[in-house]
Design a protein around this nucleic acid. Structure first.
Lengths: 190, 190
DNA sequence: CACCTTAAGGCACATTTTTTGCGTCTGGGG
DNA sequence: CCCCAGACGCAAAAAATGTGCCTTAAGGTG
């Protein structure tokens, strides 16, 4: 409840939030993660540290907030003509973004400083929305498609598991393989 | 590299490590997470804060260390007579432990304060070892079993994904369903 | 439009945590 | 038995976090 109840997009709260978020991104880009401290962000954003502590609680929650924004997809998944192509394309891009160095960091940040799991839930919802779009398009075409749940369980989950728990490279082919498997299985992922 | 290079099980380093770990567990049990600070742990463990900072770096890395120990299975998976029964039993127990309030906290801790992902990797290795044991036993019986990778991808990963990204209850039936699916699929999870 | 209410921010200060330099002790090896 | 290296304790400095109190500005009201 303390996160985004900004009064109005033009209000002061909104300006503060924007400049703080911008400061986080700038400092991280210029000086790296180690330089990210509440006082540093506050100075850069032109606010006092106490403002950040009061609004976000601590650095982790702030980073979590910023990370979730970065993980939000900016556009709906591309239409490649078929369910198979759409899903493969989307999964590849997802894996590519998430498995990159910065991507892994954002995922971890989003998961961190998130006592109630609401930020993590938002991330999952982003993916679910994207998949929903792909599945809906397939339905319009008359294709039989897996449920969103099945895709989350057997495409998204394995990728995230590896990203989080198994350091090491993840080739695009891995995404392809997961998509193939979920499309080959009986329509309902049960 | 800074984690467990204790010189010898009887050395001073080992004693310090043990008392610090114990202090973490005790404080958490008695006063809750909020009371866990480096100075508090140090006082309880009878060491100075600087010792903890030098050995672990910060509180998160220490908690990560402790969490990994707690997540280590203490015994091999029970032998229930068949692959299906073994895997179902193991998955249920895994889900039960991981999805509980404390379980989720340990998982998050383990993931946190783990810049290089080595602690997370250890968690994954624990699960892989358990699964390996189940699969090996099945092979001895002459049963055809899925690969360890397939079980990680399609049983463990979905459970962890929900635990981390989708707050909400996870019934044991969910584990059952995942196991059924992986056993029904063609032997190699490809 | 002027006024009121209230959430949010600034500022200064207190407290706590984190870092660092340096001397000492412990344990392993020659 | 002596030496070396790593780990720890201690104390002081530096940085961070948390709080009380006042000011500002957004949004609603008459």
């Amino acid at each position: 409840m303390s996160r985004k109840p900004m009064a109005r997009p033009g209000g002061r709260s909104a300006r503060v939030q924007a400049s703080v978020h911008a400061a986080v991104r700038e400092i991280e880009a210029e000086a790296g993660r180690a330089a990210l401290t509440v006082p540093a962000v506050a100075a850069r954003a032109g606010v006092t540290p106490s403002t950040i502590y009061r609004r976000w609680g601590d650095l982790q929650e702030l980073l979590s907030d910023v990370a979730v924004e970065r993980l939000r997809p900016e556009e709906p998944p591309a239409d490649r003509g078929s369910l198979d192509a759409d899903l493969t394309s989307w999964a590849r891009q997802f894996l590519d973004e998430m498995a990159s160095g910065p991507g892994r960091a954002y995922v971890r940040d989003a998961l961190l400083g998130d006592p109630d799991g609401s930020n993590a839930g938002r991330c999952s919802a982003y993916a679910a929305d994207q998949i929903e779009a792909v599945v809906a398009r397939a339905a319009e075409r008359g294709e039989t498609a897996p449920t969103v749940e099945a895709v989350l369980d057997h495409v998204v989950a394995p990728m995230m598991y590896r990203i989080l728990f198994r350091p090491g490279p993840l080739p695009a082919a891995y995404a392809d393989q997961l998509v193939r498997a979920v499309l080959a299985a009986p329509p309902t992922g049960r």
